[in-house]
Design a protein around this nucleic acid. Structure first.
Length: 345
DNA sequence: AACACGTGGTA
DNA sequence: TTACCAAGTGT
């Protein structure tokens, strides 16, 4: 009974893609720089969030050489709000390597691309296929899900990844490798969705073992996620008479590495009382709560931040910035929220 | 294999 | 409100 299903036909998926593909900005032209930029931005990030950043980067740095010539700091600032900031450093480092060491041209092979900072197995394969028509099937979260369902792989995702990636390669067409890569992801995004897959509209419905078994919506099997520690912190908003606010730079490793923040207490599980918190404050006076506490959720921790505002006691050295300058600074969402909720916009 | 690493949208 | 999740990478 298990052998009664037809094999998934690549041409059938490509025909579906020709009709249903979305008009994404990086599909306007096949340019390795633009494809690379879009792929790095799209890592673990919804396309809706990517598009405005992609447009802004392209407008500001139209070519690889432009981006390579930029300062790392301005790239980080332009990336602000998109998250996973290590990507911005890798992006810039990669631009410089390609511009300076590789003659301004991206490697065209998966292995060559894979050696560049910020490009892992998925991104290297995606760029090789989409920009250079290399015969490879990039495996992202969409593809893992589609393949897990197609072959009814019930093993937990973490243990099945290698198997699923291998099976994905067997789906490869004879031509149109770039389109096929995007078609597979588009299928996962539009039809073979995590919840409530739209099987009746799927070009591969008849080949899908999970659908045949009625278990499509339960695949792939994911393991439970670790609970996030709930941390507490108090941030200090020191505002000068001219409106400038004191910021500081975070350490160059770890969460929000190298990004700017308000001076703050350490983040800990136990709530702070104001007196203890103020031992961590920069020299100031007239401290008072400037907004209700708010929660900000990161990938692996959750922080509840209280913001207290005060006036500087004396002349303080440090990074002072006014509201008008914030667009050019590396402000993560946590800092942006703290400022906005304290009326500093 | 498992974990660190952001953010905002959706149910 | 909680929980899940998105065109993953590096360690």
């Amino acid at each position: 009974m298990a052998g009664a299903l037809p094999s998934p036909d690549p041409k059938r998926l490509l025909a579906w893609y020709d009709v249903h593909k979305r008009a994404l900005p990086w599909r306007v032209r096949r340019d390795p720089y633009r494809i690379w930029l879009s792929e790095v931005m799209a890592q673990q990030t919804t396309l809706a969030a990517v598009i405005p950043y992609y447009q802004a980067f392209l407008a500001r740095w139209p070519s690889l050489a432009d981006l390579a010539a930029a300062d790392a700091e301005e790239v980080l600032a332009a990336w602000s709000g998109l998250g996973y900031y290590r990507r911005a450093r890798h992006l810039h480092a990669c631009a410089r390597i390609v511009a300076q060491d590789l003659g301004g041209r991206f490697p065209e092979s998966v292995e060559g691309l894979r050696a560049l900072p910020g490009l892992g197995a998925y991104s290297a394969a995606a760029i090789a296929a989409i920009a250079f028509e290399r015969p490879t099937v990039p495996v992202d979260g969409n593809v893992l899900r589609v393949v897990a369902r197609l072959f009814a792989v019930t093993k937990p995702l973490a243990q099945a990844k290698a198997d699923l990636a291998e099976r994905a390669q067997t789906l490869r067409p004879r031509r149109r490798f770039g389109d096929f890569a995007q078609a597979l992801m588009e299928l996962g995004a539009l039809v073979c969705t995590p919840r409530a897959p739209d099987c009746p509209r799927c070009p591969w419905a008849k080949a899908c073992r999970a659908r045949a078994q009625g278990i499509a919506d339960s695949l792939p099997q994911k393991s439970a996620k670790k609970a996030k520690p709930m941390l507490q912190a108090v941030a200090f908003l020191l505002r000068r008479a001219d409106g400038a606010v004191l910021l500081r730079r975070r350490p160059d490793t770890g969460l929000l590495a190298g990004m700017l923040e308000l001076p703050s207490t350490p983040w800990r599980e136990k709530p702070w009382n104001l007196d203890d918190a103020l031992e961590h404050a920069p020299p100031g006076r007239d401290w008072q709560e400037s907004a209700p506490p708010f929660r900000h959720v990161f990938s692996h921790v959750s922080v509840t931040l209280r913001v207290v505002a005060g006036r500087p006691a004396g002349r303080l050295a440090g990074l002072w910035a006014k509201p008008g300058q914030w667009g050019g600074l590396a402000l993560p969402s946590l800092t942006a929220k703290a400022l906005a909720r304290s009326g500093q916009s």
